[in-house]
Design a protein around this nucleic acid. Sequence first.
DNA 1: CGCGCGGTTGAAGTTATTCAATAGCCGTGG
DNA 2: CCACGGCTATTGAATAACTTCAACCGCGCG
Lengths: 236, 236
Amino acid sequence: MLLRSSFDPAAVTTSIPSRMERPTEDAASLRALFRCQKLTPFEARKVLFREGDRADAVFLIVSGLVRTYRFFPNGRRVLARFLFPGDIVGLEFGDVYPFTAEAIRDVGCYRLTVRQLELLCKHSTALQSDLVTSLRRQIAVGDDEILPLKHQNADARVARLLSILARHGGCSLRNGARIELAMSRADIADFVGLTIETVCRTFSKLKNDGLISLPTPDDVQVLNAPRLLALAEEED
Amino acid sequence: MLLRSSFDPAAVTTSIPSRMERPTEDAASLRALFRCQKLTPFEARKVLFREGDRADAVFLIVSGLVRTYRFFPNGRRVLARFLFPGDIVGLEFGDVYPFTAEAIRDVGCYRLTVRQLELLCKHSTALQSDLVTSLRRQIAVGDDEILPLKHQNADARVARLLSILARHGGCSLRNGARIELAMSRADIADFVGLTIETVCRTFSKLKNDGLISLPTPDDVQVLNAPRLLALAEEED
DNA sequence: CGCGCGGTTGAAGTTATTCAATAGCCGTGG
DNA sequence: CCACGGCTATTGAATAACTTCAACCGCGCG
């Protein structure tokens, strides 16, 4: 089974933290509103929005994969998050987009202008509350998935990414699960905060240790889920 | 580090400044509501709320300093954030507190039950919108202050912390500015993701390089603000 | 006084990065 | 068709960075 398929509600599982609600179960009104919009495609490499532009639209991703990033002054890229089918992005910003969002693979999404959203919110308490729910979920994801990275060593960081991809791919991280990375080593490195080479070496190490196999550079097969999960929750 | 990812110089911005509004200038209704509550003191080391408890209250910090943290399975502490006077905490949580919040120094704060807040929100669009504002601000702080840490080396991480403390101390990071750390080396280490020893050595290094002086372990005097700020925005 | 605790420093060991070289893949053009 | 160039991934070797383990200092407190 490939995990690249567009969002399948039934496949979503709650593996990691209890405070993460499932995307399909929260913010129903907001999602319904999105689905009234026209489905907008973005080819791979196309930009959904650019850092510094007026933040006048929000997006619901329905298929594909998006990265949000900015650059350090010295040119190194910081990848803030991956956006998966079911994710909403844009609600959290002020006047201006603080990141660039770019399709890694072909993306389908619904686009809603902030103006529209604000107008409709005035008349819908459900929508207002969905807004809050969605923002809360985003903070929870940041705290649970991203914040620990700064304390972890290379193995743990890569394992953590795999666990994130498995969860958002729709299956939990269990033996035999297949995870399609669908992103370059550079993306992985810039997300977890390592160099490309270290990411490569870490994959090789995980492979040699029998935690995963790597049929192609893009396909990870989980061989020892418990140890992988433990690693993702470890520190040095 | 070289420019291995596509890099557009025009897209580079310094991550800290513009989208951060001052805490005292936003969410006026919400803050007003807090100020109708009784001022609650917490002595140093006392817990405002504990990880796993039902998240039934939110707080506005008015004095002192609070840390929020959780532990890795192996016992290492991850310090999620520092809460400064003006900061609101608790709005972002679901049913259960995902962190423990603990006073580092004596704290004064207003406490509001979630029940109260929810009731009042039903009748105040201003309050609802303040809620959203406050959540957005929290995400912005996470993205601007915390997320970059995972890509930075020791010097940059410590410099970043100093810049955060300076800003929240009410003064910008300029030459002659004095920053009271008001927290232990362990707190700093667990926030920036280093060991205590590395934090110590980094302070010594910054001192030897003439960027700061350290009259006492708790007092930082800024000697070269531009270089310190540049460092905080640097990467390896 | 002496004990404990937080902070600092030294030396050795480990981990990640850097620089460099190679392999594999794909698309283009001779 | 096949060669070539460009790009991504991988691996090796040397270096730099951070951690670990250990010792020591200074200070407050019983």
